[in-house]
Design a protein around this nucleic acid. Sequence first.
DNA 1: TAAACAGGTTTACAATACAAACTAGTTTGC
DNA 2: GCAAACTAGTTTGTATTGTAAACCTGTTTA
Lengths: 103, 103
Amino acid sequence: MSPSLQNLSGLDRVIHEPARLMLVALLSSVESADFLYLLKESELTKGNLSVHLSRLEEAGYVQAEKTFRGKIPHTEYRLTPQGKAAFDAYRKSLGSIFDAKKK
Amino acid sequence: MSPSLQNLSGLDRVIHEPARLMLVALLSSVESADFLYLLKESELTKGNLSVHLSRLEEAGYVQAEKTFRGKIPHTEYRLTPQGKAAFDAYRKSLGSIFDAKKK
DNA sequence: TAAACAGGTTTACAATACAAACTAGTTTGC
DNA sequence: GCAAACTAGTTTGTATTGTAAACCTGTTTA
């Protein structure tokens, strides 16, 4: 198989999931974002958002900074360098299907 | 949310799955292909390939033409117009994450 | 005539995306 | 001062599905 298509099967599943892809894309365009912002922008449910953010954290793609604003907990999420790298790699992999059509 | 990112959540799951994405990309570059060709190019197992092709058929994206070559059954798979359209739409949707970075 | 191959289908299982329910604390309205 | 509503999530349960392995039917080859 053409090597460009072959790496499609090795796509990073953590990023490939649409909900997380959206989150990573969102986070890549800002320095950091809090839960409520991501909740509104992504239109996910809280449960979903929580789970997907956890998954991105486990993968080392997202870093959560928990602080307090007064007495209310506040968490800022930001992409880690690995997260940015993974996103770049992902986009590079996907690029192959865009090129593939130019036959 | 920016409308461009919003439609990421509505990505066509039939096409989004990497194995099928690969198959659709493969089929989009040729007129038609048989099972063995797809098996080799995709490096999927036969079971997988069969299931994914069935799924693409159910979605109306792929058409299978079963014939005989001598006494051996032979199936040619090709993308339907809907399949091509769906693939184009998919690539258009994904385009948003490529643009998104240009901030 | 047994083994290998073509061309798949069926089965079983493990992973996971998702919504709903729940938790724990805080603020607001009456 | 107490109930309701809000912040900021986590946990749980379910249903889907991607995957490999086993199976199947027939054909060719040694």
